[in-house]
Design a protein around this nucleic acid. Structure first.
Length: 457
RNA sequence: GUGAUUGUAGCUCAGCUGGUUAGAGCGUUGGUUUGUGGCACCAAAGGUCGCGGGUUCAAAUCCCGUCUUUCACCCCA
């Protein structure tokens, strides 16, 4: 090994330590608490899945981003390399396992294999990392945490309302007040394209229309015309993607424009119902915007779709979700519908950092450091320290009797707010020095006084 | 996958059109203070200039390749 080699991280991955790790678990703890309060139970699945489980769920683009694991041992055994020089034909034979790309497909797999023993509607949450062989950029990683909550087996819009309720609850608990929930239904997009007479080209249409807020109406129109959509047809529906009214007014506009489409009207009715349920749940609708241009890429969404963005943080969406019917068809489960959402912890972390909404004490674990100045001290404090820990006071003892200066410097760097100094003189009177590192003051206390004081500080 | 962009000390970066021993700030270590942190001052350690090749009397500097960083597109949390 070269002498000065510094080990390198895999592109798009990060080490997470101390303050960052505590921020992550702070977010996860709040999300978990909200999920549980709505009756979701935890599920954990392996990082590895059969590639065959993963394929055919994310569309051609998504599929490219699946990490594949090379078979163990002689993965070339039994392969006629001269017959298949193309890596694409070779790949399924030499790499049969892959890393999970999201948490929804593993859920489908789980439900398909256990459906006879599950209680439906099946409510599960899942907080685990997923992997995507994407090119990293701002707020985009190759390994990141998702926090999914899904309900399988009921078409009730009550669930949609509850999921949006959970979004509001989680963000409120995390101190995020300014956010935007974009709400749409795939059937609205489908009916628009059908009314335009290009029903089979929904995906092409959606890909362009999804870029509206990014590149503007003109460029999207031009792109669609270039793709061969008819200008007159496009112009007839252009207004839909540029509605300025409130939700009720916009729904009315949609009703008028899509009156010829039963499925379109049905989708509008379901959005109306979701908003109605939200007011019943006491959730203000001022964060929610009906966004007919919202398409979302994941191939399996069929009904309601939504995502959450933060106006003041340019990091993409922090929550995404929607309803997928024909859930699990690929696994032999017919007529099973699901709805779910997913919080992106890593993006939330970046966002909350830049919004400055993390509590101040984040990343400071230890409340008090016991300095170490002679070999007998660990024995002498052995009664005080366990009592403090039992009272949930985080205590460290400096492990070596080095100079006090260095021990205080250690406390200073770790932002430990209190230090207990014990030396021979104080021991004669059975008292300890408690130093307040922020104020720079210190006082003498007995063991019992120390315990009482530190519990309350 | 496409188009750009970056790489010099542990970190953030200087280093002008090639020219002796490659610099700064922060951090680290030691000291001023052998029982008191932050501030200040003094000193020291630390660099195959991403890697490989080429041009040249001479390359951190110019050229090619490669890896890496960041950003945008596609897509997505």
């Amino acid at each position: 090994m070269p002498k000065n080699q510094l080990p390198q991280l895999v592109k798009g991955t990060r080490d997470v330590y101390a303050a960052q790790a505590m921020q992550r678990s702070y977010i996860i703890d709040h999300i978990k608490a909200v999920y549980q309060s709505y009756g979701f139970m935890p599920l954990e699945t392996p990082a590895l899945e059969q590639v065959s489980t993963l394929l055919g769920k994310y569309g051609a683009d998504g599929e490219q981003l699946i990490y594949r694991i090379l078979n163990s041992g002689d993965f070339l055994a039994g392969i006629d390399a001269s017959a298949s020089t193309d890596y694409k034909t070779l790949l399924p034979h030499i790499a049969e396992k892959g890393l999970r790309y999201d948490l929804t497909v593993p859920l489908m797999r789980y439900v398909a294999t256990h459906h006879h023993e599950l209680v439906f509607p099946f409510k599960r949450y899942q907080i685990q990392p997923v992997w995507r062989a994407d090119r990293p950029q701002k707020g985009r990683y190759r390994e990141f945490y998702q926090c999914d909550a899904d309900v399988i087996g009921t078409p009730s819009l009550w669930i949609e309302a509850e999921l949006l309720g959970m979004v509001h609850e989680v963000l409120a608990r995390l101190g995020i007040t300014d956010f935007k929930v974009s709400l749409n239904n795939r059937a609205i997009l489908n009916s628009i394209v059908t009314l335009m007479g290009a029903a089979e080209r929904v995906n092409e249409f959606c890909m362009s229309i999804d870029k509206l807020d990014k590149v503007g109406t003109e460029r999207v129109m031009q792109e669609l015309i270039n793709k061969g959509f008819e200008r007159t047809a496009l112009e007839k529906f252009a207004f839909i993607f540029d509605m300025q009214g409130d939700n009720a007014a916009n729904l009315q506009v949609l009703r008028t424009y899509l009156q010829e489409s039963d499925s379109g009207l049905e989708a509008i009715a379901s959005i109306t119902e979701i908003l109605h349920l939200l007011t019943k749940l006491g959730i203000p609708d001022n964060h929610i915007t009906i966004e007919p241009s919202l398409a979302r890429g994941l191939a399996y969404y069929t009904g309601t779709i939504f995502e959450v963005t933060l106006p003041n943080v340019s990091i993409g969406s922090i929550v995404g979700g929607g309803r997928y019917t024909n859930f699990g068809e690929a696994f032999g489960l017919m007529h099973m519908t699901g709805v779910g959402l997913s919080f992106g912890v890593d993006r939330l972390c970046v966002a909350m950092e830049s919004l400055g909404v993390f509590p101040d004490s984040m990343g400071v674990a230890t409340k008090v450091l016991f300095t170490n100045q002679s070999q007998e001290i660990p024995d002498l404090v052995s009664k005080v320290i366990p009592q403090l820990r039992q009272n949930n006071v985080a205590v460290e003892v400096y492990p070596e009797p080095i100079s006090l200066k260095k021990q205080l410097s250690y406390a200073n760097k770790k932002l430990i707010p209190f230090v207990v100094i014990i030396e021979e003189e104080e021991l004669k009177t059975k008292k300890y020095i408690l130093r307040d590192m922020n104020k720079g003051t210190q006082n003498l206390h007995t063991a019992q006084e120390l315990i009482n004081l530190l519990r309350c500080l």
